[in-house]
């Protein structure tokens, strides 16, 4: 039993953190809100140069054959920066799924480009046809009636939706469910898709932890700076306790996310339960921290011009994405009751 990351894993996190700090300040998120995605896409290219996009591909496919455990810290950083991009869809889920379930032709066409960071993949699981970043991506991997499909975005109809988090560039996807885009049929698609769903949920949980940490950082900084009654509001016990509660929620979610990553990385039999635990607690923490951060900021937090709202709205979106709390609680309930 040893619950700690390796130096290599932490180094990778630091690399991603530095890139995002430099290239994905709040202005880039704000630009995406206004329909300008160039900044967020430029980050994709820079991160591709570090090899991040190929992390989960096998070495034969030009990747690094890394696992959910290697990926969880970098994904947390993408949440911290609120980077608006389908990184979980592409790297945590899409590439491994394409490699495992793609036909030779599909792999040849898409895999090298995905590993090199030239294309972006988005996912649409059964019943989840409202997809973030669909219009600006290149390939859709979808589950319909238990079968897996790999559809070039040129053949997908995307009807714009509107997320409360505008930077998600949300759309409802549909496509012709034909044999041409069908993925391999000689394999157990059900098992692969269910693994893919768990990977998506875990990746989302990791981003949620990052979102929490950023919102808490903002609120703590604000509580130190903002003065009322002649002293920082952070000296008030009511404010302190609010932020202490936020930290507790966040810090008890975090090890669950890391543990779920380990379970996925090692194909542990308890992985599905671990992922559900992680997703529930990370989602709850992010939404709880968002609420506390808003209250601590007061009126300024309740505006569009201040940055906090972009993180809050991302938290609301991701907390329910890839299985909301009720869904995952039910999955656990069936296991333990």
């Amino acid at each position: 039993m040893r619950f700690a990351f390796t130096d290599d894993q932490k180094m990778l996190r630091d690399t991603v953190r530095e890139v995002l700090q430099r290239e994905c300040p709040p202005e880039v998120v704000r630009a995406a809100w206004e329909g300008r995605h160039e900044g967020a896409k430029a980050v994709w290219s820079t991160l591709a140069e570090t090899g991040l996009m190929g992390m989960t591909a096998s070495e034969e496919a030009g990747g690094m054959a890394m696992t959910a455990l290697d990926l969880v810290l970098p994904l947390e950083e993408t949440g911290y920066a609120a980077w608006p991009a389908p990184i979980v869809d592409t790297v945590a889920v899409g590439i491994p799924l394409l490699e495992a379930a793609g036909t030779e032709e599909q792999k040849e066409r898409w895999l090298p480009a995905a590993v090199a960071g030239r294309i972006r993949i988005v996912l649409s699981f059964e019943g989840q046809d409202v997809v973030a970043h669909a219009a600006s991506s290149d390939l859709l991997i979808a589950e319909r009636d238990g079968a897996a499909f790999c559809v070039p975005m040129a053949e997908v109809t995307v009807v714009p939706e509107q997320s409360v988090d505008r930077s998600r560039d949300l759309g409802r996807v549909s496509f012709d469910v034909g044999p041409r885009s069908r993925m391999r049929q000689d394999i157990d698609a059900g098992a692969l898709l269910s693994l893919a769903r768990d990977r998506a949920a875990l990746g989302t949980a990791a981003r949620l932890i990052g979102l929490s940490r950023r919102m808490l950082d903002m609120a703590v900084q604000y509580a130190k700076d903002r003065e009322q009654f002649g002293k920082p509001i952070g000296t008030q016990q009511a404010v302190k306790h609010r932020l202490a509660n936020a930290l507790i929620e966040q810090e008890f979610a975090r090890p669950l996310v890391y543990r779920a990553a380990w379970c996925l990385a090692t194909s542990a039999p308890e992985a599905p339960t671990a992922v559900s635990l992680a997703k529930i607690y990370a989602g709850q923490a992010a939404q709880f921290v968002a609420k506390q951060a808003l209250q601590v900021h007061g009126a300024i937090g309740y505006t569009i011009e201040y940055d906090l709202h972009m993180w809050m709205k991302r938290a609301w979106a991701l907390a329910a994405a890839h299985g909301d709390a009720a869904h995952h609680r039910e999955r656990i309930g069936r296991q333990i009751l």
Binding site: M1, R2, F3, A4, E251, F252, A253, P255, L256, Y258, R259, L277, I280, Y281, R329, I332, G333, I336, L337
Partner: peptide, 22 residues
């Protein structure tokens, strides 16, 4: 749901503790 939550909270405490102990 509350029963499930109780079980989950105990798990959360368990993994938090293993992390602390490391």
């Amino acid at each position: 749901d509350e029963v499930i939550r109780a079980w989950m909270d105990a798990q959360a405490y368990r993994w938090f503790t293993f992390q602390t102990v490391t």
